[in-house]
């Protein structure tokens, strides 16, 4: 099983969590798992077997065409994605705190009955 498939599987697990759990916190956990799986997905796209970190230094293997580097772009992208994921989670948690103080419940079924 290659990392791409694993990451998709993890994504499905996250999706399942978002979809089926009634607790707001658990929903957010599902969303976070989805986010994590996407990070894994991107990283595994950029992965090359036996690749080095793409850091060039003076006088090292930079000029050698046979050296394999991992793709640095997905890694850079994922730094951004992680930051975004964290801010979404933070916002969601803030909302949950507010919702709890209004309704005294974290259950989505009960919430949807409230007017």
């Amino acid at each position: 099983m290659n990392p791409v498939n694993i990451s998709l599987l993890v994504c499905m697990i996250g999706l399942y969590g978002v979809m089926s759990k009634n607790n707001l916190i658990k929903k957010i956990m599902g969303l976070t798992i989805m986010n994590g799986s996407i990070v894994l997905f991107f990283i595994s796209i950029g992965y090359r077997k036996g690749g080095l970190a793409p850091i060039l230094e003076k006088g090292t293997t930079g000029g050698n065409p046979t050296t394999i580097f991992v793709d640095p772009l997905p890694q850079a992208l994922m730094l951004t994605a992680i930051v975004i994921g964290i801010s979404v989670t933070a916002l969601a948690l803030a909302l949950i705190v507010k919702i709890y103080s209004k309704y005294k419940t974290l259950d989505i079924q009960q919430l949807s009955k409230e007017r």
């Binding site: 994504c11 999706l15 978002v18 707001l24 929903k27 969303l31 989805m34 986010n35 996407i38 997905f41 991107f42 796209i45 994605a81 979404v88 916002l91 969601a92 909302l95 949950i96 507010k98 919702i99 209004k102 309704y103 919430l111 949807s112 409230e114 007017r115």
Partner: peptide
């Protein structure tokens, strides 16, 4: 910050979050 707006915002966040995750996967 009334109850209904918070709930509406949370629902939008969950669905929007899933939607944008799909988008990002597609980009991947």
């Amino acid at each position: 910050k009334t109850g209904v707006t918070l709930r509406a915002s949370f629902n939008y966040l969950i669905m929007g979050g899933v939607g944008l995750s799909f988008f990002l996967l597609g980009v991947g």
